[in-house]
Simulated scan of single mutants.
Amino acid sequence: MTSHVSATPLVRGLQDRLWTAVIARDEHAAAEVVFTAIENGIDAETALLDVIAPVQARVGAEWAANRLGVAQEHAASAIAERVIAALAHHPAVRTAPRLGRIAVACVDQEWHVLPARLLAEVLTLRGWQVDFLGAQVPTPHLISHLHTYGADMVALSSSIPTRLPAAHAAITACQAVGVPVLAGGAAFASDGRYARLLGADAWAPDARSAARLLEDGIETPVLTAGRQQIDDLPHLGDQEYTLVVRSRPQLVREVLAQLENRFPEAAAYTEQQREHTAQDIAHIVDYLGVALYMDDAELFTGFLTWTAGVLEARRVPGRSLRPVLDVLKAELKDFPRSTLLLDRGRSVLDALLVSGGPDTGDSDDRLSQFALHPDS
């Protein structure tokens, strides 16, 4: 949940200085940029959402464009997290809680913690008692926390769409114990349609909007006891999602086995390149799965487009994705929704390659939604 407010010249200058410090891996210089700004009158919320968050989004965009390596991206992210933690304890920004209690958590297997952390800090600044539970919180642990400490609301964060089934489970479980859910993060789409589809009580596009919603009060319907996930998504009754997800290891192995015949360049891959290729194939299967879960082809085709751009930036031809889709279609020929999605993916990919290749521009929204994996 980050802000997209137009930056003033002062804020842009702070972003540039913070970027320079982060790229130099100078944690002390990065902290000095932020703390000096606070001492000079910038409020902490602006520092968090309009200085730190855009710089971190730029880090991710530079990684996608292959202008930053994985280690550089990790180092920059670690600096951002440590600066935020230090800022939270700065005497000038401490705020006594006077409002209700909010539990802020990332869904299970969601490692992109920064949006949730930013929301937690903003809510704390505005006077909420915040329990920040951090990254990848298993749903049983979240429910145990609610039973033990209670909460007026759960703010649930997810950045990667493949975590949407886990988000669905968490939303359903929280509501079953009487706690409404505010959803946020790129996984839920820029218009929040996936949050609504999964039954969240509210959705916010960024931390400021979330804070305003909570301050105004969120009207929640009477929660229906015993509601099942399949009631929300009746198309899951065909079992395609479950069967495809369970077949993931076999599908990855089969694509790898046939790849050299369909894409001869793969014969020269190093062991590391083969490992990365296996990871990419697994991600494609994951996105096929979540597209089946949500019954939304855009989740699959959008990921393919983004992946083609990332590959091209690394001098791997985007056409290398085509044989992956061909093998998957052959293996899943008895699954009508899967084959339809794969056909859509092939059409989008073919059109993209005919037009001269994917756009590798620095789109923060697409990066945050389709980022592959923390170790990619």
Rank of each mutant, 00 (worst) to 15 (best):
A86N: 11
Q15N: 11
A169Q: 03
Q228V: 14
P9V: 04
D238A: 00
R346S: 14
D362W: 13
R246I: 07
S376G: 15
A78P: 04
Q72I: 10
V93W: 03
T172D: 00
T270E: 01
R246P: 04
L325E: 05
R193Y: 01
V33Y: 08
Y287I: 00
F335G: 00
R126A: 05
L236W: 03
Q369M: 15
V130T: 12
L133D: 12
D334W: 06
R208V: 09
Q229H: 12
I171N: 05
A211C: 01
S363E: 10
V70L: 12
Y194M: 04
H283S: 13
A96Q: 13
L118D: 02
L123C: 07
A371F: 15
N40K: 13
N261Y: 00
Q175H: 10
I52C: 01
P115Y: 12
Q250P: 03
V316W: 10
L328K: 07
F335N: 07
H4I: 14
D343G: 14
D364V: 15
D296Q: 07
R208P: 01
D43Q: 01
H283D: 05
T242V: 10
I143D: 01
Y293K: 04
T139K: 05
L164G: 01
A24C: 06
L353R: 10
N261M: 01
A80L: 00
A7M: 11
Q369W: 07
R212G: 01
A29T: 12
Y241K: 04
R274W: 08
